[in-house]
Design a protein around this nucleic acid. Sequence first.
DNA 1: AATGAATGAGAATTCATTCAT
DNA 2: CATGAATGAATTCTCATTCAT
Lengths: 186, 186, 186, 186
Amino acid sequence: MARPKSDDKRNSILAACQAVIVRDGLSATTADIAKEAGIATGSLFTYFPTKADLLNELYVVLKSEMTAELAGALTGGDDKEKLRRAWNAWTGWAAANAGKHQALELLRTSDQLTDRSREFGEAAVRPVFDLISLNAAGKATGITPGFLFELINVVSIATMDNMASYPDRAVEYRDAGFEAMWRIIQ
Amino acid sequence: MARPKSDDKRNSILAACQAVIVRDGLSATTADIAKEAGIATGSLFTYFPTKADLLNELYVVLKSEMTAELAGALTGGDDKEKLRRAWNAWTGWAAANAGKHQALELLRTSDQLTDRSREFGEAAVRPVFDLISLNAAGKATGITPGFLFELINVVSIATMDNMASYPDRAVEYRDAGFEAMWRIIQ
Amino acid sequence: MARPKSDDKRNSILAACQAVIVRDGLSATTADIAKEAGIATGSLFTYFPTKADLLNELYVVLKSEMTAELAGALTGGDDKEKLRRAWNAWTGWAAANAGKHQALELLRTSDQLTDRSREFGEAAVRPVFDLISLNAAGKATGITPGFLFELINVVSIATMDNMASYPDRAVEYRDAGFEAMWRIIQ
Amino acid sequence: MARPKSDDKRNSILAACQAVIVRDGLSATTADIAKEAGIATGSLFTYFPTKADLLNELYVVLKSEMTAELAGALTGGDDKEKLRRAWNAWTGWAAANAGKHQALELLRTSDQLTDRSREFGEAAVRPVFDLISLNAAGKATGITPGFLFELINVVSIATMDNMASYPDRAVEYRDAGFEAMWRIIQ
DNA sequence: AATGAATGAGAATTCATTCAT
DNA sequence: CATGAATGAATTCTCATTCAT
């Protein structure tokens, strides 16, 4: 296999895609993405057969990277501690990777995202979902777990947005966001 | 803003635009919008010089319509009552105008939206913002009013989304959402 | 209706298409065809939604034009006279419209041609087919009418090719071709 | 024509090319041809510097194979017998090698075929041409040998097409085609 | 004004050919 | 030599905007 399809190149295309859509929006051009990745326009398509495929893959990869942060966070301590660590890990990632977080937000609302990708995103996040459901059980009246999670989700996103926008006050926002979330599920 | 010939036609274009972007996403075509409005493709441009102008105007109009609901809600009773009425009015509008609410969400994340439009949207919402700031004062530690409002905002959006998605449980979601919000600002 | 879609322009696109595919083959570019027609690249597509549509339409139009020549030829006189007149009309058209005839040949073998177009071409030619079947009845042993017609068809095409290639001997080729055909059906 | 490394591989590329253009038309991809041949895309170009070269070579090879059938047919017996044997050999080959015959037809009308290849094709067929000229001499009035041969050629092609399409009646078509041809040259 | 055809600058994707491994 | 990824010019088609009628 001469010149094997390199993971490096694949990753650099994904990184370029992320950077360019943050800069130019989802209407960013495959040509621009390729240029940013330092490859020829045609080469992009040997790695991703379609622009939609690239966008979906980027979503999945970023979502995976984001949730990888949770790995260690959910073990040890009581539930509030677990949630606190999860929250910190999660929002910390977003603050440290503002561009990736923004790209994720753009992709989430894109009409190019397939159901498959959306489902993947939900599955990646399920452990936290379960932990929250557990803690909220019997507390919030009339609230379904799905809705509860949706609330938590948007609160976390808003928190990360703010952390990314005002890095020097990031920790404050992080903690305030956690308090808000905790109040919701209590 | 000089009034063009026919406000009726202008409004029907805005309505068509709203319907079409909900159906087809923000990549909807000016030709499709014109067809939905029952006019010729060229005519659209005598009312809106640019597609971006149309989208921004739609945002402003929908935001205005949405906040008009608040008019009566903010007078009389204690603050919680005021907020409750505002909340009900607001989410009620979104539930009853699911398409408009969705369009607003699509536009909010669009890279076509100008700062001007974004500022307008914020201004329209300021009375509620102030009310919330007032109530939260001194409570939530370290939380800025802007961030607080951002949190409330996304909670309300998530609530409206759910209300629109499950109309028969709309009231439950509305109330649960309010409780969540109220806990945040306490 | 401002600036109605003009038949003139439609026809000039068809004419340009014919000229260009004779010059460059079926791989001729829509851009080249548009340029030859004196219109913008995009305009071609307001008349023909697809390159394949254009090619098929050209085939149908040329085939119609070709068979229109037969209109008067098939009435009066005995069958041999009818056939003689049909033959002369037909080959005469091809000789006088060499480019159109060549285009027709290119299109006939194209993999872009739909079954619909092919059927149209056969239908247009049926009157002659019937006349030939009638005359050949009981003569050629074991030969089916379909095969017979196919033979006549290729003989006529070869005749037209030669007439077009050597215009000053066109009449000779025409008559020799007719004799060949007549011998086949006797 | 210097022999490249492996004749086997060269032949398998030609065979693959023939199969693929019958399946997909002349717009078949060099990548597809290579895949069908079981080699890498790049390897194709060590055997044929250009796609056009490959197509022309295929034409020449198939034409050679086809005319090789005539070798023994043209000796012994009177002219009609010779022609009959030639006809049977020829059409028999096409019927037994439908794909090759089709490929030859596609290539004949291709704009990729060079004059050189076309000339080769004519030369390969000259012995039959001469035999026909001899027999037709003085008979068909005003008909040139070239035109005569052209007529015979298309009649043979139509015959082979039909034989390939309806294999169980192949012999009937073969004989009927011969009779048609014989009548033309008488 | 209204109409809708005309415009032409892109956009995504393809593919013959090259070249690093 | 073989491999198959890399290249980038070329292709079809789209669409916001203009403009003749």
